[in-house]
């Protein structure tokens, strides 16, 4: 073998051995050096995969959009009512039959079968009634869901970081979420908080899309059917900022208050909209503390219904 080749082989062998030595060192150093961002992508995946787990021992399920999974904490419910609760909020979700059926499959057959459904103007807009996010999570393969739910939380220190997010985090800026994988609640906040931040985007959406009366009437029929088949549906509207509520009601000509009244007239439990003392970090979602307060208030109201 030529001398040059022997030399290169030796160098390659040495490089490879050193590389194997350096790999754990650089990985450990990275874990220590890089800031752990609160919105962990791996925990986020585990969080969504967790919503697909089919336990069947819940007393109460919450169904709705991002306002639900960011605004209602089942842990608070458990603490205050001793009920086992789970949150089935999905991004831009519409409370259609597929989503509600997915949630009620987790209810214990011996309980009161409480199904708390959140309605918002956004949930009956054409882009939401597609339920894209829920469907995409549902379409994950069984092995994918298993890996995400069981493995990702264990290796979330290998989470990917966005360079821009690290800069924002160092400057204390950005949107953050802490995921509770077992119950489907995400405590969220935004720095700096701005109760009008999401309003322009919603305004654009209302200009572009139509409120679907068809989806609304399907929803009413489904809720009535749900009640007649032994479930106990409760309709709520999760609080958001004053400007957001005004925008939603104006853009949809008071569709949600009208819908809630109609359901109440037809014998469905409807909790009144209350936002006193609660604050939203972007106009649409409750911050962590307000979510806790709102969950307490909701658990008192629902506790009363449960004891009926």
């Amino acid at each position: 073998m030529p001398v040059e080749m022997t030399y290169r082989l030796k160098m390659a062998e040495r490089s490879m051995k050193l590389w194997m030595l350096f790999i754990p060192i650089t990985l450990l150093a990275s874990i220590f050096i890089l800031p752990e961002l609160p919105s962990s992508p791996m925990r986020r995946d585990a969080f969504w995969a967790g919503k697909m787990e089919s336990d069947t021992n819940e007393d109460i399920v919450f169904v709705g959009d991002s306002r639900v999974y960011r605004g209602i904490d089942p842990l608070v419910f458990g603490r205050m009512t001793k009920l086992k609760a789970r949150n089935f909020g999905f991004s831009s979700a519409s409370p259609d039959s597929i989503l509600i059926e997915h949630a009620i499959n987790c209810l214990s057959s011996s309980g009161k079968k409480l199904v708390v459904i959140a309605v918002s103007a956004n949930s009956f807009m054409s882009s939401s009634i597609e339920n894209t996010h829920f469907k995409s999570v549902k379409s994950w393969s069984v092995s994918d869901k298993w890996v995400k739910y069981h493995i990702y939380p264990l290796i979330s220190f290998f989470d990917n970081r966005s360079v821009a997010d690290i800069f924002k985090y160092m400057k204390s800026e950005g949107y953050y979420e802490h995921y509770n994988i077992s119950n489907g609640f995400a405590a969220s906040y935004k720095i700096p908080a701005d109760s009008n931040a999401a309003v322009p985007a919603y305004q654009r959406q209302f200009e572009r899309e139509q409120y679907s009366k068809d989806a609304e009437s399907k929803f009413i029929n489904y809720v009535l059917r749900l009640k007649s088949s032994g479930y106990h549906p409760v309709i709520i509207r999760v609080p958001c900022s004053y400007s957001m509520i005004q925008l939603e009601d104006m853009a949809t000509k008071n569709a949600i208050p009208r819908l809630m009244r109609e359901l109440m007239d037809r014998g469905i439990d409807v909790l009144p909209y209350v936002s006193d003392g609660l604050s939203s970090y972007d106009g649409s979602h409750l911050d962590e503390q307000s979510a806790e307060l709102y969950s307490q208030k909701l658990s008192q109201d629902i506790g009363r219904l449960y004891s009926k």
């Binding site: 390659a12 490879m16 050193l18 590389w19 650089t26 990985l27 990275s30 990917n160 360079v163």
Partner: peptide
Amino acid sequence: LSKFPIFEALFYALIVSITIFFRGP
């Protein structure tokens, strides 16, 4: 770089770390 095994190994170990921690979704 391949003439200096220690630097080459460190360089590729760093690329592995960057790939793991700065990967996109």
